[in-house]
Write a protein that binds this DNA or RNA. Structure first.
Lengths: 213, 213
DNA sequence: TGGCGCAGATTGTTGAACAATCTGCGTCGA
DNA sequence: TCGACGCAGATTGTTCAACAATCTGCGCCA
């Protein structure tokens, strides 16, 4: 059984999330189509997918550019994250098999902290929260959360100080996980809410220091 | 200032939500492009947008069909609705200007009940819940909820008994609104949760009577 | 009866072409 | 000097025709 070949939208999403394009950069159809070796029509289909994901912004007759979350966007993303993530956690069972996936992601992050590999720390943090959402067993909540995570990643890209952005939160993830298995979902949700409030503050602080709107 | 012309995806979404196509029906590119008077490429772009919204299902090399929510989908949609809608309501202020919008939608539904216009009752019910989400002032929660609402509408379409589907819930909406302005967000959220549980039960019951998977 | 393979239909993708719209720049007039 | 105007080039929106890749249904054969 072969894996389905990754679609063009998948390829582009990876490139954008990896930071191959500056947030806010315009993506010229002709140039990008040539670079990717596809036709403009095919590229435009991929653009429509990414635009729905919030990864690129499409303005009619003005083309698409890599999304570049504003301060208001960051605030909104965190508002939505708090509601969805805390809601999922509050209703989650500490016995759900997905808890093991959370633990794996956590441990991957902790190893990466010791290795000083902040990019991997960031990836592991994201994986931890994705695993957290998976406790809901809800494809639609996973979809919504995935969109938020992708957009947030663009905000992280605009801040080029991955250590300060990700390092402090590995310990916080551990606190959330231990609260879940030890004190129960309510306590875990409270810890997660504090986590998200602090993370938002950090991002907004960096934004304001960058003079970013 | 002119309104932007509705995109092809908007037109198709309206047609699908209006039930112009049977849920599950295949949408042939060539036939539909000819019918809409657009080229296949343009139509394919619109398909990509609708697929991300969950309104159509796209299987590679097999084309797109109108989505037809399964029982599992309905359960998932309601799980996500409970989490998002109740979460929003719990955090909402009874003084938010959006409460007036909720009241308007509610009254429109109540008039439609008296007129026996069940389609309008259904539309008003949807508008009530959309207005409820707007209390969060979060574009992203509105986006996620909009996707759920569109998919749910397809489930409603599959059940052709709009009266039983929508009539009972106008009074429940009133209860939610009065709980919000009277007893506060917590009580309102509890009323809403009961609403959603009962609504889900009704849809699943109809599905099972239809012998639907 | 059940599996195989072919033919037709459909989707995926391309390239070129043109219309519609935007953007930047130079000119003109106050 | 400064702002409005308009033109020219660049970019996007859309169409069309063609072909490759894949799927589907049907008849054939064992």
């Amino acid at each position: 059984m072969l894996q389905p070949a990754p679609s063009l939208a998948d390829v582009l999403r990876e490139q954008i999330i990896a930071g191959d394009f500056e947030p806010g950069a315009r993506l010229s159809e002709a140039a990008l189509a040539a670079q990717l070796g596809v036709s403009r029509n095919t590229l435009r289909e991929a653009f429509r997918v990414l635009a729905q994901h919030g990864l690129v912004e499409h303005v009619p007759h003005r083309g698409v550019s890599v999304a570049s979350p504003s301060t208001a966007d960051v605030i909104d993303i965190y508002r939505a994250r708090r509601l969805i993530e805390c809601g999922v956690l509050r209703a989650a069972s500490p016995l759900h098999p997905g808890v093991a996936v959370m633990r794996l992601a956590l441990e991957r992050g902790e190893s990466a902290v010791e290795a000083g590999d902040w990019v991997t720390v960031g990836t592991a943090n994201m994986a931890f929260h994705r695993a957290l959402i998976a406790l809901s067993d809800s494809p639609r909540l996973e979809r919504s959360h995935g969109q938020l995570a992708a957009e947030l990643r663009l905000a992280f890209l605009a801040i080029d100080d991955p250590e300060s952005l990700h390092r402090p939160f590995v310990a916080r993830n551990r606190a959330v996980l231990e609260a879940l298995t030890g004190d129960g979902p309510e306590a875990a949700a409270d810890a997660l809410e504090r986590y998200l409030i602090d993370s938002e503050r950090l991002v907004l602080g960096a934004y304001s220091r960058m003079g970013r709107s």
